[in-house]
């Protein structure tokens, strides 16, 4: 029963880029000021990743660590591993001012793939994709809602809040319609 998981939307039809919802991914919001003792080790232990620099996302296998703000790191890991990771973080950062909290179910994640994947997002995000740095985690908006995305070899991962997953899924599909290539 307790492992019954409901996805908000099903994978959608293909346009000029392949759009599908993935997950759920395990996600932890880790708030701690830069330089907090044990922070680097805690991130490493939870994700296998180094502490990301400004706007950077570092991936390692199924895990990733992304820079969200000067005092916030997003940890991505398998959904089932979140509870253990939280215990480990609280142990590693014991006595240090920090906040680590499970936000896995607060998020929806989409994959946008194909050679023209960027075109789908150019219609939704006020972001200069030509100047995106490798391994950049970009927080912005997708049309009318908050979103964040990062790029890899096969496309983009875009995350938004779970409640608007339907809206964002529709946005992506509308933007990827055949005939709308830029």
């Amino acid at each position: 029963m307790s492992d019954a998981i409901s996805l908000m939307t099903e994978a959608g039809s293909d346009g000029f880029a392949k759009v599908r919802q993935i997950g759920p991914l395990g996600m932890i919001t880790l708030r701690a000021k830069a330089g907090t003792k044990g922070l680097r080790a805690a991130v490493k232990a939870a994700t296998g990743c180094a502490l990301p620099d400004q706007r950077q996302i570092i991936t390692s296998g199924d895990c990733a660590a992304g820079w969200m703000s000067p005092d916030e790191t997003l940890l991505i890991l398998p959904h089932a591993g979140v509870a253990a990771a939280l215990r480990r973080i609280d142990h590693d950062l014991k006595g240090q001012h920090h906040l680590a909290v499970d936000v896995s179910d607060a998020r929806a994640v989409f994959r946008i793939e194909g050679p023209k994947a960027d075109q789908v997002l150019r219609k939704l995000c006020p972001v200069d994709f030509d100047r995106l740095e490798p391994g950049e985690l970009r927080r912005t908006r997708a049309a009318q809602v908050a979103a964040a995305f990062w790029k890899d070899d096969s496309g983009f991962s875009l995350m938004c809040f779970r409640s608007v997953a339907g809206y964002v899924g529709d946005l992506l599909h509308v933007s990827a319609q055949p005939g709308s290539e830029l």
Partner: peptide
């Protein structure tokens, strides 16, 4: 632009919306 019909504005749905 795209803001018409179903996606005129975001609609937030709870997990039990369906």
């Amino acid at each position: 632009g795209e803001a018409r019909g179903e996606i005129f504005q975001p609609l937030r749905k709870t997990p039990m919306d369906g």
